[in-house]
Write a protein that binds this DNA or RNA. Structure first.
Lengths: 408, 408
DNA sequence: GCGGTATTGATCGATATCGGACGAAGTGCG
DNA sequence: CGCACTTCGTCCGATATCGATCAATACCGC
């Protein structure tokens, strides 16, 4: 993903691809407006892309707008199956691999359970096997795969893609899953934190479509957040941004594995709620148990959830004051808890955040559920799809110069 | 600042200008690497820009690198005086106007005191007068001014540049200072919050040069912050981002004018510290008074400052955990307080922020002092200088087609 | 129904960009 | 001191882009 400046001759194609990727469907004349190129150039590039099999003339669909008059435009679209991206989500207890088409729609999706925390090598082997299985089963040419996106439940150092020491996956410290999987699969890989991947997915395909300033908060075992600012993921200088689970929520709270006291995750994380209930119930309580108890209206569980939600809401309120986001998307298992979670969350935001910022923000549950992270991982690659496609077209022209499709 | 896509023919010039603006000094051959254009194209564009008087062949300076061998490169630079930007800083008790050259260096700078809070119209008139006076005195052609940057001590709605209701400048609510000043001066204007302007200035010209993830915190009357994320200012969806002064610091603290309780600004803002001392001293204490007391080692003043710094540090710690910045720059009057301010600040960050994030961040005082905001205001314009210059060159070619310098 | 109008998409000469070859300007070594 | 070598900048033919003109298609009003 090095940002080598493109040859000026290749910029046109890139712009057309980007515009099509962005708006999904567009005519030649609309493309001239979107790209700034001349109509002649757009027509020429479009002809190229058509013969390259990347785009197609859409069969003309519903156009319910009161059209102005004039010759009707011929809509063009990217062919979704012209290229694919693979996403791999490495969680604590499972590996998930999905293949997505150019639209980001998953066409293959599998989850395999396993104790990933302690076995990096085996987990990476398994992941690579799943990827190859997917490509084989869907009969995809390796050259049609744009790349591999990986997300993992621990911070990723942006500089070299290595995993940070303070993460919760003990055996993985220092491992560079991107490079490992590149060697195993032959695909170019990029790696991100799971919350960042989830944020990207919800922004591209889920509840946050079209927003530019969004926070995705993930309530599963711990608490993590992915921040989108100005349309771009906010990772911070070392990839640690969004570690909302380690904001100090109660200075007199319990000791966190990160070394601080009263981190939000230890005070209000789903695991902490479950542990709280274990004390009174005297037996093991999992997050699904918790959800069932809440659903049954168990007063202790409801109280624990509400208290946790208020703590989370207070921290979110700070984030709202500081970042002034448009939307907060709540994902992870616990998002299923519904209004009992959302009501105290929103109340805390309205109460503690700066009023105009609180008014500007909406809190919604995620739409993608357990698919969010994998789709976001693939989405990281797809976000660069136009660039990768343009690069490949340019390389193909410089290399094999025999285009039998050139003239008639 | 509409982002109309450029004609492909005009992209080359833009890229060359951007590269030169970014690195400051560069040879033709280095420009080919920076821009991705061919050597031939770069040479042609450079010839254009030379004859347009925008760039010059630098007289060859110290090149102390162990040079590799080969024909020496001919360095090129933008001519700093080829264009200017005007900055206007509208504070609570003063208006400051500066003219900066293409390097961002101020060549004219004036402060005028006045009760700006209650007199928007008079303040705008005064500002416009100062701007015109500056242009006249420095004998600058209006066509050589790229634009006007305005910053003001209240949140600015990004959508239309109007001032937000919750700001601290009562008479200004709903005013659109950008449009007002455009009408008065004939320059195109852009408006930002003062903390955002300060952040930009410190990042471009001050303590934060070269950083991409930075927080600028301003301790003057109140507390505000400007956030730079991934090299871009983070304004949020409504321009409210960075309102660190309204993060709730003490839920049982006093009522803030924003309607909440215990906002950081009311608990630990310079004005709050001064008010705290007034209670014991029984007379009016200003921020300069406060600084003098601290300098004299007055124990009450020192204690009040340290307590305030800890409160501020705790909120900054949250920001460090959430944004993982590289640098925190402390500006505003109070930054002059020195180690008595910085020590508790850093201690709180180390204590409350996530350890690896705390290790990654450095806290430094600002370098630009009271010039930060004006220079940042001008810097907003200068950040787009290449684009504006390229646009103007293109427009000039389409319009007046008589270039006597073309042949011969 | 038919000309007027508006918009899209294609065609054509002028021009700018690209890649490669060439001259220019130095360094290092025999 | 000359020659090989390296890098920088310019020159030149091939090609893509641009702006303008032209054909195609649909709506509108009389």
């Amino acid at each position: 993903m090095i940002d080598t400046p493109l040859n000026l001759r290749e910029v046109g194609r890139l712009r057309v691809l980007e515009a099509l990727h962005h708006v999904g469907r567009s005519s030649r004349s609309q493309l001239t407006r979107l790209t700034g190129l001349s109509r002649a150039t757009v027509s020429s590039i479009v002809a190229d892309l058509l013969s390259a099999g990347l785009i197609e003339e859409a069969p003309d669909t519903s156009e319910p707008e009161g059209r102005p008059t004039g010759r009707p435009a011929q809509p063009l679209t990217l062919i979704p199956s012209a290229a694919y991206a693979v996403g791999a989500d490495i969680g604590h207890q499972q590996v998930r691999v999905a293949v997505c088409d150019l639209n980001g729609d998953p066409i293959w999706d599998t989850v395999v359970a396993g104790d990933t925390d302690r076995a990096p090598r085996e987990t990476l082997d398994l992941t690579a096997d799943l990827i190859q299985q997917a490509i084989r089963e869907k009969d995809i040419a390796l050259g049609d795969v744009l790349g591999l996106g990986v997300d993992i439940a621990t911070p990723v150092r942006t500089a070299d893609g290595a995993l940070e020491a303070h993460g919760i996956m003990p055996g993985w410290v220092g491992v560079r899953p991107g490079r490992e999987l590149e060697e195993r699969t032959g695909l170019t890989a990029q790696v991100a934190n799971d919350a960042d991947a989830g944020a990207l997915a919800e922004r591209l395909y889920g509840a946050g479509r079209g927003t530019s300033d969004m926070i995705y908060i993930r309530l599963s075992t711990g608490i993590g957040a992915g921040i989108v600012s100005g349309g771009r993921p906010l990772t911070g200088v070392g990839g640690l941004a969004g570690e909302i689970g380690h904001v100090v929520s109660d200075p007199r709270g319990g000791i966190c594995r990160c070394g601080n006291r009263g981190c939000l995750g230890t005070v209000a994380g789903p695991a902490a709620i479950a542990r709280l209930l274990e004390q009174s119930w005297g037996r093991r309580v999992t997050v699904p148990d918790l959800l069932r108890l809440i659903d049954e209206g168990d007063r202790g569980a409801v109280r624990a959830l509400e208290d946790a939600a208020e703590h989370i809401g207070i921290v979110l309120a700070d984030l709202v004051t500081l970042l002034n986001p448009e939307l907060i998307v709540v994902g992870g298992d616990l998002a299923a808890a519904g209004p009992l979670l959302f009501a105290p969350l929103e109340r805390a935001i309205r109460r503690y955040a700066l009023a105009p910022a609180a008014e500007a923000v909406t809190v919604v549950p995620g739409e993608l559920r357990d698919q969010a992270e994998v789709r976001g991982a693939a989405g990281m690659v797809l976000a660069h799809a136009p660039r990768i496609l343009a690069d490949r077209l340019a390389a193909a022209e410089r290399g094999g110069d025999h285009h039998p499709v050139t003239t008639e």
